[in-house]
Design a protein around this nucleic acid. Structure first.
Lengths: 148, 148
DNA sequence: GCCTGATAGTTGCGAATGGCAACCAAAAGG
DNA sequence: CCTTTTGGTTGCCATTCGCAACTATCAGGC
């Protein structure tokens, strides 16, 4: 067994643990910036919905690799805040299509400033290439952990 | 504002969200492998303590960027399971030095097999260099998010 | 048309996590 | 000494999310 490799893995787990809490904080701030009562986890769903367009709850659960029950609650929360709309899927009476409301889109646009401030403050020394490379590796790592 | 960069950031947040849950799962498995009742978060503290040697509670809180109250509970948990020992710091009556017990060390060593299986299964296509590069970037990202 | 099984979502429940603040005891420095 | 700081513990509470049970709908076979 390659000892170095195992050690690297240990560091990886530790770093991921730290990143978890820090990113949570950042996302929490941003969530509150979008809407006073918006929970961090729901904010992530909202951004996903904004970039990928309308989709159903189960698709989100798949993309986030998360329990559908948990997603259901987050979606409910977003609905209550008026940030998304649920329109019944004409093709399937069970399903609903989720889409971002204009209000939410407006709020998210405003937060771009916030995001820019964050970028300038914290990620100033990250080049676009670095950032992209990092995200790619995160994606690859995620894929490796995908239980299929 | 560079739109691509902002979009990359959005992806980053999403990926981090996914990685959080997946890594939690992996760490949870490994924690249980070490000890039936070992909680994932405490497992991380344990590995940290193993690689860096004895230290006090507050040092861990710093390293993990976590609330000292939370650490206190995790440490208590580890103590109850007999995985660490608390020895009063001779130089400071308030502090205690935490160290991994032999039992814990033995258990952790056994789990190396488990870890190897994990490595072979999931990270087979990661070269040592790739893995290290990824961990380095995680570290750098963490540093960027450090509130100082 | 029915019956059966899969699928979309909701909900109740509970465990894990961790922040905040109040607290105690010991140290440090005037 | 007396005040301030620091190490740790504890109570309290919000968030997150997995599991499982349940409802409603769809789809395929008979």
């Amino acid at each position: 067994m390659n000892a170095t490799r195992s050690q690297t893995l240990g560091t990886l787990e530790h770093e991921v643990g730290v990143v978890i809490r820090r990113v949570k904080r950042v996302i929490g701030e941003r969530a509150r910036a979008v809407h006073e009562d918006l929970q961090p986890a729901s904010y992530l769903v909202l951004t996903y919905l904004e970039t990928t367009g309308a989709c159903r709850s189960s698709a989100i659960a798949g993309a986030f690799d998360m329990d559908k029950g948990a997603i259901s609650r987050l979606v409910q929360h977003l609905d209550e805040l008026g940030l998304i709309e649920r329109t019944p899927d004409p093709a399937d009476g069970r399903a609903a299509l989720l889409s971002v409301t204009d209000d939410a889109r407006r709020r998210m646009a405003d937060v771009q400033k916030h995001r820019r401030k964050y970028l300038d403050e914290r990620l100033a020394d990250w080049s676009d290439e670095d950032l992209r490379a990092f995200v790619d590796m995160l994606g690859r790592y995620n894929a490796s952990l995908d239980p299929d």
